[in-house]
Each structure stands twice: as C-alpha cells, then as structure tokens.
C-alpha cells in the first residue's frame, strides 16, 4: 500500500525512538544517586561510609520534636522507619511545621546527627479549603 521509502522512514524513526529511549533509560538508571533530590533517613543508615560532602535529607518533621535553644533549632526527620536528628540556625520557611514534609541540606556529622545549612519545606499533593480540613480533623 505504502511505498518502500515510507516504510523505510517509518522504520528509521522507530529505530531512533527505541535506541534513544533505551539510552536515556540506562543513563538515568545509573545516575539515580544524583537524580534524587534528597535521601530518606533509612537510606542514610544504610550508607557504607560517611558522606563528607553536602547532602540533602528529606522526610517528615516528627511530631513534638521541634525545640529552639539559643536560636538553634533542632528537630527530628523521620520516614517512619528511621530517624535522624537535625540542628539548624537560620531562616525557616513559613510552611515548616511538625508532621509536615521537610528537606534539610547540610552535612552529616554521624549516623544520627545532621547539621543543616538550609531548610526547605516540602508541600504535599493535598489541596483543600480550611473548612474541609477542619471537618476532616473532626472525624
């Protein structure tokens, strides 16, 4: 039905698409370490050696863990499996709150202790008006 050239062009595009997809997949797979924006506390525990360079840790701010002593903020990041203690002094975003997502950038002191140089609040995918939130909490 279609000419030989049309078939060849179709096959050509098909080959390009398959080859490129595979290449990109392999590249991303091997770069996974760098593609992730932050590590979870559990992943930190499984590190074979101490990271000296700047890293990011993300998870939930553990409830009732925030305390401020001498302008130094300390709190616990949890992924509900492992926990890590974070100390930080500096600006905190408005949405930083207990029980909410957080990403801390800084240096690992030891397995359980992290010194942050920057704190980012992570927003979740829930969007609702305050009344609905209040109604949900009442349930």
């Amino acid at each position: 039905m279609y000419g030989r050239k049309v078939k060849l062009r179709f096959f050509f595009i098909f080959l390009i698409a398959v080859t490129l997809s595979l290449t990109i997949f392999l590249i991303l797979k091997s770069l996974e370490e760098n593609v992730v924006y932050f590590k979870s506390p559990s992943e930190i525990k499984t590190l074979s050696e101490m990271q000296q360079k700047k890293i990011r840790i993300g998870g939930m701010v553990k409830t009732d863990s925030i305390s401020i002593v001498n302008k130094e903020l300390s709190f616990v990041i949890t992924d509900f499996k492992s926990e890590i203690n974070v100390v930080y002094s500096g600006l905190i975003p408005n949405l930083f709150e207990e029980g909410k997502g957080v990403v801390a950038e800084g240096f690992l002191k030891d397995e359980n202790f992290f010194s942050a140089t920057k704190i980012l609040a992570k927003h979740d995918e829930n969007y609702m008006p305050p009344e609905v939130k209040a109604a949900l909490e009442e349930k």
Partner: peptide, 23 residues
C-alpha cells in the same frame, strides 16, 4: 520515580484526586 521537592500529582485519573472540587 525519584524523591523530588515538587509534590506528586494531585489529579489522578485512576485513583482519587487529592484536590478539593472547589479548587
């Protein structure tokens, strides 16, 4: 696929959306 600072999708075709209808 990866940990990102950006939140996941709120509107899902197959599962329940996490955005209130008024929004």
């Amino acid at each position: 696929w990866w940990n990102t600072l950006h939140q996941p999708a709120s509107i899902n075709i197959l599962s329940k959306s996490t955005i209130h209808s008024s929004m």
